[in-house]
Simulated scan of single mutants.
Amino acid sequence: MNPYHQSLILIGMPGAGKSTLGLLLAKNLAKDFIDTDLLIQLEHRKTLQDILHEKGYLALREAEEQVLLKAQYPNHIIATGGSAVYSATGMQHLKQFGPIIFLDASIATLEQRIHNMETRGIARPANQTFADVYAERRPLYLQYADIVIDCNGKHQEQLLDEIIYAEADNFIQDEA
Rank of each mutant, 00 (worst) to 15 (best):
A79N: 13
L60T: 10
K55S: 13
I77L: 12
I51P: 10
R61N: 05
K55H: 13
D35Y: 11
A79G: 11
G90W: 06
R45S: 09
L42P: 07
G82M: 00
T47Q: 14
M91R: 02
A71C: 15
E62A: 13
L39I: 00
Q41M: 13
L48Y: 07
G81R: 06
L38P: 03
I77H: 07
Q66H: 08
G90L: 05
I77S: 15
Y57V: 01
L39T: 09
E62R: 12
A59D: 12
Q49A: 14
A84Y: 08
I40R: 06
K46N: 13
G82Q: 00
A63E: 14
Y86S: 06
H76V: 12
H44E: 06
K46R: 15
I77M: 15
A63Q: 11
A63C: 12
Q72V: 08
K70P: 05
L52I: 02
L58C: 07
Y86K: 05
L69I: 02
L42T: 09
G90P: 02
L58H: 00
R45G: 12
D37S: 03
D50E: 13
I40K: 07
Q49N: 14
G90I: 00
D35C: 15
H76N: 15
G82L: 01
K70S: 08
D37P: 09
D35I: 12
N75K: 13
L60A: 15
Q72S: 14
G82C: 05
H44D: 06
T89R: 04
L42M: 14
D50P: 05
I51V: 14
Y73G: 10
L69E: 04
L69M: 09
E62W: 06
L52M: 13
A84G: 03
L68E: 11
L38K: 04
M91F: 01
L68N: 07
A79Q: 06
T80K: 04
L69Q: 06
G56H: 00
A88P: 02
T36E: 08
P74H: 01
G82Y: 04
E43I: 00
T36A: 05
V85A: 02
A84E: 05
L52P: 11
I40N: 07
V67S: 06
K70Q: 08
A88Y: 03
E62K: 12
L48T: 04
E54M: 02
V85N: 04
R61G: 02
H76M: 10
Y73I: 12
E43S: 07
I40P: 11
E43W: 03
T47Y: 15
I78P: 09
R61T: 14
Y73M: 11
Y73V: 10
A59K: 10
S83A: 09
N75I: 10
R61S: 05
I78T: 09
L38F: 08
Q66V: 03
D35T: 11
Y86F: 10
L38I: 10
D50N: 08
D35K: 12
A84L: 06
I77T: 15
